[in-house]
């Protein structure tokens, strides 16, 4: 009994201190994460606040944090200088077409590479791997020359063009199709299904999560890409939000409220989608990670 008492006395403060140090550890983590979060949010907040200031107020020394009066002139100017209606439409169409072709072609090829046997399969698949290893810039000059010789610059097709097929998407979906058990496919064949039915009715519906991931990845990549749209479509009315916004830089070198308003207008649709489908965005992009 005596020994028990002693041991209890000994361990009690220890447990207490462990708990305490855990809590203080947690507090430190909260503080660091919170400070980091402030650093992440601040540029966007500053963008928003600046966009409502007049140029004179933005350049005031020392700067005021909030606009003294909320001013929408910069938005009017940004909307005047860039054909935002066209930019939204072009970007939207580019994303829709790229996502549709990627989803369709990559699913087909991914299924075939994973589940069908045919001569030269490995050789053809090595083309996919080669493409994935090369940076996209090495294709850009000839891609542009092809487009120019067809007279198709400054079109929606030009924006979609390099993204019609996706080696990475094929690779990614092949992994998913490989995870589908062969027994399931054999059973369908025994029931009299043909290959097309096995693909569309049995396998394709099982890849929804992967398909969502690759679609989000394709959309975000297309939306943020700058070099290709800048080269392919030089007519302002045919630009994307990203390339269009980049031209604002030259027009309003020193008028930061207009630049901030333009930036906000261009990021709004994607950020809105992100806020709604935050989980799918993060998990989708993380699933395609490494590319």
């Amino acid at each position: 009994m005596n020994t028990n008492e002693i041991s209890a006395e000994k361990t009690a403060p220890k447990l207490h201190s462990v708990k305490k140090s855990r809590n203080s550890g947690k507090i430190i983590i909260y503080i660091l994460l919170g400070l980091g979060a402030v650093l992440m949010i601040f540029p966007f907040l500053w963008m928003l606040l600046t966009s409502f200031k007049t140029n004179a107020q933005a350049m005031q020394v020392p700067p005021t944090f909030f606009p003294t009066q909320w001013n929408f002139d910069s938005y009017a100017k940004a909307l005047e200088s860039l054909p935002f209606g066209n930019l939204y439409l072009n970007t939207g169409l580019m994303i829709v077409f790229r996502v549709l072709t990627t989803a369709a072609f990559c699913s087909m090829a991914g299924f075939a590479f994973a589940k069908l046997k045919f001569k030269g399969r490995n050789l053809l698949f090595s083309l996919i791997l080669i493409q994935m290893m090369l940076p996209s810039q090495i294709f850009i000059i000839p891609q542009f020359q092809m487009l120019a010789s067809l007279g198709l610059t400054n079109t929606i097709f030009a924006l979609v063009f390099p993204g019609i097929v996706s080696a990475f998407g094929t690779f990614f979906l092949r992994q998913t199709y490989m995870g589908i058990p062969d027994e399931l496919i054999e059973a369908a064949y025994l029931d009299g299904a043909n290959t097309w039915q096995v693909f569309t009715k049995i396998c394709f519906p099982l890849t929804k999560t992967a398909l969502a991931a690759i679609s989000i990845f394709t959309a975000v990549f297309a939306y943020t890409d700058l070099m290709w749209p800048l080269i392919a479509n030089t007519d302002l009315n045919m630009m994307t939000l990203t390339s269009g916004l980049s031209t604002l830089n030259g027009q309003f070198t020193t008028n930061y409220p207009v630049l901030m308003a333009g930036s906000l207008l261009s990021m709004l649709p994607m950020v809105a989608l992100y806020l709604v489908f935050q989980k799918q965005f993060i998990e989708g992009i993380a699933a395609t990670g490494g590319k």
Binding site: M260, M270, Y274
Partner: peptide, 10 residues
């Protein structure tokens, strides 16, 4: 999910 162009601008 924000274009680097907008990020660079701010």
């Amino acid at each position: 999910v924000v274009a680097p162009v907008a990020v660079a601008m701010v």
